[in-house]
């Protein structure tokens, strides 16, 4: 009889309760798959397929149209790691990611702690500090290009007036790096600020009251209460910011174009110029994979060594 075969009916087949649970789990999984299908399809087309193709392409030489020409094994990788330009790019990328990443979080934490109190007028500053989230990278780049312009920009003229000879920062390797770090911090602060503000405001006031009664100083309260309490947010932001900074592209393209003297030719930008400028798709693919590996490692490293210090509720 049909009913007796139905493993989902525990009354009829009491001896196979385990099988019944299994059946229910299976049905739940099926339903879940259907719900996931739209995103899976989109991810497959726009993320997984390009990733796999990039991995394959990195093992081939290609023609100018980007079609696979000849299997070359790991020689693309050997080539980029013996290319001084790539190694320079690697070093500059790290300098940029670390300064801009930490700078963003430090500035955001500072601003958030300034306005987390319920004081009159703080609403304005909260909106102002968060507003950079709504500005596109391209707009910000052009804005800062003007600000740093040696003959019409406010910052450019200021530098000239305080006696900086090289006030055309974009033309200077270090100066160009500084501009990109500044723009990147400015762009990233809004998001980090909002997250940290939320975290700060969820720290109960009573913790500080206990600390006040026990005579801890402001500085000690910050390190003993605030930082541990917002550590999950700090950790989240560290991971997100570091990944984000590695992927910086728009600002480089619009402000420095990777120059001067390749000083700001970070890996993500070099992948683009090698692929679509030099039409060397095999090389670009292997560089992209190296970048992926670096980001993956950086993230793993943060989870491995930073997360231990993070307190989760």
């Amino acid at each position: 009889m049909e009913l007796h075969k139905n493993p989902d009916n525990p009354l009829l087949v009491p001896s196979t309760a385990a099988a019944s649970t299994k059946g229910r789990t299976l049905r739940k999984t099926n339903a879940a798959l259907w719900f996931l299908l739209p995103s899976l399809v989109i991810l497959a087309i726009f993320t997984f397929y390009p990733m796999i193709m990039t991995a394959i392409e990195s093992l081939f030489s290609t023609n100018v149209r980007g079609e696979l020409a000849q299997f070359v094994g790991f020689s693309n990788y050997a080539e980029i790691f013996s290319d001084p330009l790539f190694l320079k790019s690697l070093v500059n990328t790290f300098i940029f990611v670390i300064t801009a990443g930490l700078g963003t979080i430090a500035l955001a934490l500072f601003l958030a702690s300034m306005v987390s109190d319920k004081l009159r007028g703080n609403g304005f500053f909260r909106t102002a500090f968060a507003s950079t989230m709504g500005i596109s990278g391209a707009v910000a780049s052009v804005l800062f290009l003007f600000l740093f312009n040696p003959s019409v920009g406010v910052i450019g003229l200021l530098l000239k007036n305080i006696g900086v000879k090289q006030n055309n920062l974009v033309a200077d390797p270090t100066g160009a790096m500084i501009i990109l770090v500044v723009v990147s911090i400015w762009m990233g602060t809004g998001f980090s600020f909002l997250n940290l503000l939320g975290a700060l405001q969820s720290v109960p006031d009573d913790y500080y009251a206990v600390a006040d009664l026990a005579g801890w100083s402001s500085w000690q309260k910050t390190w003993k209460i605030t930082v541990p309490m917002v550590s999950p947010t700090l950790f989240f932001l560290l991971v997100v910011e570091i990944i984000g900074k590695f992927k910086t592209f728009t600002e480089i393209d619009l402000i420095t174009g990777g120059g001067p003297d390749n000083a700001t030719n970070f890996i993500a930008y070099k992948v683009y110029t090698d692929a679509f400028g030099n039409r060397n798709f095999g090389i670009a693919a292997s560089e992209a994979l190296v970048l992926t590996a670096i980001i993956a490692f950086a993230t793993w490293f943060q989870f491995r060594f930073t997360e231990r210090k993070v307190y989760y509720k």
Partner: peptide, 9 residues
């Protein structure tokens, strides 16, 4: 305090 104010970490 009412919520004890024990530092959770």
């Amino acid at each position: 305090f009412q919520n004890y104010a024990l530092l959770p970490f």
